[in-house]
Design a protein around this nucleic acid. Structure first.
Lengths: 215, 215, 215, 215
DNA sequence: AATGAATGAGAGTTCATTCAT
DNA sequence: TATGAATGAACTCTCATTCAT
């Protein structure tokens, strides 16, 4: 079981008390929590399982979080706050529209293929009632601002004649709707099925943007 | 709750043994279950609450279903099987494209405003792991067939010159993606917020279809 | 199941209300109860199963017995009262000791091979606490009297020189102890195992009686 | 119930979390389980009562056993495995037959007066269906071996002329049958009644062994 | 900071019994 | 009499949380 032969200070291998820096533990716990919560939902997820996945004992969780609920909040706070604004789709004068569309699609579907993003989105759907303040914050500060920004960029570009005055200018959500469709598919279906759907969608999505955006 | 105004013999309201035909009770139970399951998720939903909502004792549920799980399955079996194919969007030669688009959008967003549809969809997202056989059936027999049918209709119409050869011909899911976006919004946000988003989306969605479909 | 094919009015086969004379029903129920009780014990036996075995509905039982307990009592009352005294081992002057011993053993082990007797005995062991009055009655009126009678017969025969003054004269229970041993084996072990033990026991038992009884 | 007189530090009696080493608790639980199971049978015994008797909360049981069934199995495994072979009746050349018989009877009826042995035996009768593997093991490894050993000893002694070639040589079970009869009586009847029967039986039993064994 | 035995408040389920039909 | 839907109490088991170590 333990490999005494290899590790010199053999005592270390035995002790169960593995004391870690708090922030490292918290990171471990939240990672574990994301998996368990998104796999089973908030109330079906068991502290026992989260603990095990974080390589900790059940009681040990309570040294870092005061309750299951507080783990959940910390998790969504972390994952909802700094995500989408990493890099956005910006039309600069220099690059061609084709390249811009491609980079947008790449970015969008790149997010989609990140299991953590899907998992977070699923939690949001399932458990949004549990964290209304966070959901509200997320919508106002992240989503709405992102969409408004997108819309402004699109309108400016359209006014400059770089792209057509299309329906996308009315509601930038249209731009991303197919990608969300793909995300939903990934939540519901197994990987093979979902991947096929997403691939087809991605190609059609790109073609649609071309049709609607080229001036 | 009890409607004294309608039912004359008030004595009925008092007696505890309210015996109902099995199929009526089953209907009641499933109606109650849809509300409770979609509101709290499978495992947080309590048999006690389902029973109360179905005006029954907790134990009484077990005269009709052998377990919580079996209620869940019966519910999704019922709601997944005969739903979407009620009436679909068909382009007949006679009607104009404008009217066809309008009727499609009306139908799509009409479904969206039905809380039962949203509730079912939410359950599907949340708990699909619980009923893989049903989910599989639903995708193959309902969704895929519907999409294929749509695509065939669109292609025929395009070949006849009634509409443009657009990206929609590549993947009919594009047609409905914005509506699903709206559905997801309804699952996450409160009614006021969601309604505003959906309304905006609906108008932009219709305009988008026009732009992409008129020949 | 029912053999209506033979009786003319075929409509009878359909109706569920099969009204039977009360005593026949009671007989059916007690027969079913003996099986279920001795197989699962009093509290694990289910009214549902007793009813089914008696070809009756659960509620129907209550037309004949007011409770589970009362079925149990009726069952043991019936089976404890008139049983053992059917025919006993009596040494008449005419028959030889060998024949008497053989007939005794045959009778004893004949009872043992009756599953109903084993079942009743098992119930007695398991659930005697539930029916102290019956158990008491059974011991005083059936068992003690039978043993006393046996002892009297043995003593008389010994005094007449027909058999030896053995330990059996001190306690007639010794006579039957090996058979009870066999009965216990039948309660605990499967049929094959028990039968082998009982057969061996029976032969040794008979030989023992010869050794101890022949003058 | 609580023994203030004996345990000095009364504070111990108050605190709720009385943490014990796992093996001690398991011992306590099994002791409690034997009482409850043999008193009420497996299915009538309540986890609540077992817990209370083991001075533990209901849920606490599940830290040590995963189910009621597993407590039952552990109990019978423990009680069936190492019991009978403590000390057996061995005829050595040195001691007289009278002394050997006396020590055998003492040992046999000594076991009989141990309530735990009676309780286990009762459980075996009542619930043997629940643990066929254990019952099978017990018969093959404990009972059959013990009987075979007894028989071998008897035969050797008979060949040496130390005792008579009696029916006991055919089946050593005959030796113990009256004691089992006594055990059965203790299961069925109240203590006073049973004790009287057992005492009588014991004397007759000893006399019977003398009659059959002295060469 | 960490463990895991222990608690206690439910949860789902079973089932003897009742009662409208 | 008979049925089976319905009740309600009791049961086993689960699990977030606490606490002695």
């Amino acid at each position: 079981m333990s490999n005494f032969a290899l590790s010199y200070p053999a005592i270390n291998s035995i002790r169960k008390h593995r004391r870690l820096p708090s922030d490292v533990r918290i990171e471990q716990i939240l990672r574990a929590a994301l998996v368990e919560f998104s796999q089973h939902g908030f109330s079906s997820a068991r502290m026992e399982d989260i603990a095990q996945r974080a390589e900790l004992s059940k009681g040990g969780l309570y040294a870092h979080f005061k309750s299951k609920e507080s783990i959940f909040e910390a998790l969504l706070l972390k994952r909802l706050t700094p995500s989408f604004n990493n890099q956005q789709w910006v039309l600069t004068g220099g690059e061609s529209l084709n390249e811009a569309i491609k980079s947008f699609i790449d970015h969008l579907y790149g997010q989609l293929s990140d299991p953590d993003v899907i998992a977070t989105l699923k939690l949001l759907l399932t458990e949004s009632r549990r964290i209304p303040h966070l959901v509200d914050f997320w919508r106002r500060e992240i989503i709405d601002k992102y969409l408004a920004e997108q819309q402004a960029i699109l309108k400016a570009a359209a006014n400059n004649g770089h792209l057509r005055h299309s329906a996308f200018l009315d509601d930038a959500a249209l731009l991303m709707a197919p990608a969300l469709y793909g995300a939903v598919w990934q939540m519901i279906f197994d990987e093979t099925t979902a991947t096929a759907t997403v691939d087809s969608l991605r190609r059609a999505h790109m073609r649609m943007l071309h049709e609607l955006l080229v001036p």
